[in-house]
Simulated scan of single mutants.
Amino acid sequence: MFRAAPRRRTVVFQGQVLLIENLRERSQLMSDALTEENFDVGVVDDAREALQALSAGLLSEQGKRPELIICNARMLGDAGLETLARLSASHPDVPVILYSSFTSPRLRAAMARVQGACILDASADLEDLRSAALELAASRQKSL
């Protein structure tokens, strides 16, 4: 049987929330919650694509910068978190929220290296994410 490739939404990034999440249901719940708060959400659901987007200079031009990056830290992995740490250090004006349902001491240490990131622990829920996103977006608007 022939299966067509799923349609992917083009991720533009400018003025968007960049959501890096590979679990479809979680991604949809998060996208819906953020959309209700008037965020435009671009989703990257593949770790390699996320690493490529982050390492390819996603933040190198002002016009391409997302408003906020929300990331499943476990999905991104060590290399992705290291890349995100470098981007966060060079672009502190783009807030980052990191979360993971399952953490280890090693993953928590890697998450802590992302300068200025808001880290949500395993007990955080969708409302915690929504509140953090609103707070970071508001503080970003005040600093612009």
Rank of each mutant, 00 (worst) to 15 (best):
M30G: 04
Q14N: 14
T10I: 13
T35Q: 02
A33L: 03
A33P: 00
V41G: 06
M30W: 02
G42S: 08
F39V: 11
N22E: 15
T10H: 05
N22D: 15
L23A: 11
T35N: 01
L19Q: 09
T10K: 12
L19R: 03
E37P: 00
R8I: 03
S31A: 12
E37R: 00
S31M: 08
L19D: 06
T35L: 02
F39W: 06
M30V: 07
N38W: 00
F13W: 09
D40E: 03
L23T: 09
S31N: 02
R8V: 03
D45H: 07
V11K: 10
D32L: 11
R26F: 14
D45Y: 05
T10W: 02
R9G: 06
D45Q: 11
V41N: 04
V43D: 02
V41Y: 09
V17R: 09
A33M: 03
R26H: 12
V17Y: 06
E36K: 05
V17N: 08
R26P: 01
M30Y: 04
A33C: 01
V11R: 13
E36Q: 05
Q14D: 15
G42C: 04
Q28E: 14
F39N: 10
Q16M: 11
Q28A: 14
G15I: 13
L18W: 13
Q16E: 15
E37A: 06
F13V: 08
S27L: 11
V44Y: 01
Q14P: 01
E21H: 06
L18N: 10
D45R: 07
R24E: 15
R9L: 11
L19P: 02
D32T: 10
R26A: 15
L23I: 07
L18Q: 12
V43Q: 03
D45F: 08
F39Q: 05
S27I: 13
S27R: 12
N38R: 00
R24C: 10
I20S: 09
V41A: 12
Q16G: 09
T35G: 01
L23N: 08
G15D: 13
V43M: 06
E36D: 12
E21D: 10
D45S: 13
E21R: 06
V12E: 11
R26T: 15
T35A: 06
L23Q: 11
V12Y: 05
G15L: 10
D40Y: 01
T35P: 00
L23F: 04
G42Q: 03
F39Y: 08
E25S: 11
N38P: 00
E37C: 00
E21N: 09
R24I: 14
L23K: 03
E21M: 10
V43A: 09
N38C: 00
A33Q: 02
S31G: 02
L34W: 01
Q28I: 13
R26M: 15
F13C: 12
D32S: 09
V12W: 07
S31L: 03
D45K: 06
Q14S: 14
S31Y: 01
V44M: 04
D32M: 07
A33Y: 01
V12F: 07
V12M: 06
D45I: 05
L19K: 05
E21C: 06
N22S: 15
R26S: 14
E36T: 03
R26N: 13
